[in-house]
Structure formats: C-alpha cells, structure tokens
Design a protein around this nucleic acid. Sequence first.
DNA 1: TGCACGATAATCT
DNA 2: GATTATCGTGCAA
Length: 215
Amino acid sequence: MREPSEKLSQIVTPRRLRVRRLRRSELPAPTLELARFLIGKTLVRDLPAGRITGRIVETEAYPPGDAAGHAFRGETPRNLSLFLGRGHAYVYFSYGSFWLLNVSSERLGIGAGVLLRALEIVDGFNLIRGAGRKTARHPDLARGPGRLGRVLRIDKRLDGQDLCANGPLWLGTEVWPRKAVGKSVRIGISREVDRPFRFYEVGNPSVSGPLRLRT
DNA sequence: TGCACGATAATCT
DNA sequence: GATTATCGTGCAA
C-alpha cells in the first residue's frame, strides 16, 4: 500500500515554509560555484491556484566556452536568455516533449548557465497533476529535468524571467540544511563528457541518473 | 538495476 | 535534413 506513506509525508512536511527570495548579490558569479551553491536552495512556482516549492537536489554547470553548452556557438534567438547575466531563466524545448529550465550565470553578455535537473518537492503536492496516483511516487515527481519542467508547468513564457524578482518563478533560501554535495560527469551529453560539472545532494531519492551517480 | 528503443518538434545547418 | 542537456516502457538477469 502506498497510501499511508503519502499521508505520512504530508504530515511530515512543515505546514509553513519560511522561504525568501535570493538576492542576485547572493548568487556566486562563476558558473561552477553557482551550480554547487544551488543544491539545497529552493525553486518556487507561484500559480493562480497556489504555490509549489521544491528543494534543488541536482544541477549541471555549462560554463563559458563549454562545447556541450547551448551558448557555445554564440548568441541566437533561442539561447538569448543565457546572456542576460546571472539569475535569469533560460527555458528551451527538448526531445519533442519537455521544457528544460536553466539558471543563467556569469555576467551580462557572457553565455553560460546551470541546468536544474531535479527537485525534491516539499510543498504544493495538491497542485501537482498526478499526485496521489499510484504512478506518482513523491520522490519521482520532479526527478529529472523533463519531469521538473512538467511539474512546475514551465514553458516558453517563462524564458527570460528574472528569478530574483517578484514573479511566478523564483529562487529561494533553503528550507533545511542540505547534506553532502556529490560531484560527477554530466548526463545525456555527447561532447565534453568527462567534465565533472554535475552536482547533487548525496543519497537523496529525488536525484536522477543511475545509482552510481547518486551516491 | 540496467540496458535499448521510439516518440516528437523546435532549432540550427 | 540532422540533431537533441529526456522519458517511459519493456525485457533480461
């Protein structure tokens, strides 16, 4: 039976989460540092019906000059948001079905970003389509960048959003202290495959990828 | 748990 | 026309 554990996790979830927006000045400037810094912080989605809050548990850095990064070949209409200076949303459509969310990094005019790969949802379960069904185990809701985008209802309209400003999507402070941060190669790329630019909270069941990349 | 595979459409060449 | 920072399913062990 899955029902009891779902109820338990709702009871365990703090009724009132204290989260405030992160100021841009709090975000480390270098892409790699930002990717590590974001582990344990929150991503908040404000919808007409309410708020969904998730702890960021997995990220990947795509620093300047990285051949695996979308900004590598220069600015285009698609990747413009990567050049807006740190703390902006870069949203793009992938594999015909998924909206993926990045946080731009570095200075205005320099293209780089951090891909948000997975969240541990901590609030707003009732707003998530599929929650409470047998197929929607809580740790899996936003496990993987495609699911993250689906759960938070990310789409092109959020591309370019300032994630440090008042708006429907923003970065927040942590809700409890994070555990150890692990480091590994990135997932799903074909260039620069050996760079250890992926970060994750060790042992967290909401982290995606094979077991060896979660522990 | 770990693979292979197909779906699916925007973007770039 | 090729590519793709993915996911869900199916099958093997």
